[in-house]
């Protein structure tokens, strides 16, 4: 976060600068964009996705055994991530118990595939949000964290191993719904669990591309996690062309 007043940068704590208590630039930007999308409503803004299973609980790490490890915010992403109540009006299944959906405001919604082109168990490749950022979308056949579609089983992830960047293309194992082991140091990721490392050396879950489904059109709407090689998913590259 960067302070809108004094320019200090911080990565822990809330929206206010630890030095001068002014709001962060990011927070102000977020407020502005939230106000704009509220004015337009979710359907017209096209920024809403209803990812199945992105409930708050999924990200409360260590709540069972962790004691002190539970629910402490450590780093607040700069790409704006915000939780809103979802009315399920975008073609995704209605959410059980009003679990919050994700809006990633600074990412641009881009069509990546047609539902009818997806064969269960066979990844389709696409680039997003920048050119050269290689990803795939796959219908797993089992409900997954962040999955969309009738069964909540359509997910998309980066192909770049978050250990040291080796490409994971061609390593999807449909039987176990895992990606890997990576040919470099054998990291394997669980695609039903938000790209969690099953076994291996990556220091970050495999970045998951958030999806939205509108009729037969499948859209990428954002990225959860930092893509290998980048300091910011949206910096140091050319954005892919947005297709509606």
């Amino acid at each position: 976060m960067k302070c809108s007043e004094c320019g200090r940068i911080w990565h822990v704590g809330g929206d206010k600068c630890p030095t001068c208590t002014a709001f962060s630039e990011e927070y102000l930007r977020e407020q502005a964009s939230a106000a704009a999308s509220e004015a337009e409503g979710p359907d017209s803004s096209g920024e809403v996705t209803a990812g199945r299973g992105f409930s708050r609980r999924d990200f409360l790490i260590g709540a069972v055994g962790g004691g002190a490890a539970a629910s402490v915010a450590i780093l607040v992403p700069v790409a704006l991530t915000e939780w809103i109540d979802d009315d399920g009006g975008d073609g995704a299944p209605p959410d059980d118990g009003g679990s919050p959906a994700v809006v990633v405001a600074t990412f641009r919604r881009t069509k990546i595939a047609s539902l009818s082109d997806l064969t269960p168990g066979e990844p389709l490749d696409f680039e997003y949000p920048l050119e050269g950022q290689s990803n795939f979308v796959v219908k797993l056949g089992a409900p997954a964290h962040g999955g969309v579609g009738e069964e909540g089983d359509i997910v998309a992830f980066s192909y770049a191993c978050t250990h040291m960047g080796c490409p994971l293309n061609g390593l999807y194992k449909d039987e176990h719904r895992i990606l890997g082991p990576c040919s470099c140091h054998y990291t394997t990721f669980d695609l039903t669990r938000g790209g969690l490392v099953v076994l291996g050396q990556a220091t970050e879950n495999l970045p998951q591309i958030t999806l939205a489904l509108d009729g037969d059109d499948l859209y990428a709407t954002g990225v959860m996690g930092l893509i290998f090689g980048y300091r910011d998913n949206l910096a140091d590259g050319t954005p892919v062309e947005v297709t509606a």
Partner: peptide, 13 residues
């Protein structure tokens, strides 16, 4: 919801 987010999966910078 934001403060419940784990640092691993969601940091993007």
């Amino acid at each position: 919801g934001v403060s419940g987010v784990s640092p691993g999966p969601l940091v993007s910078r």
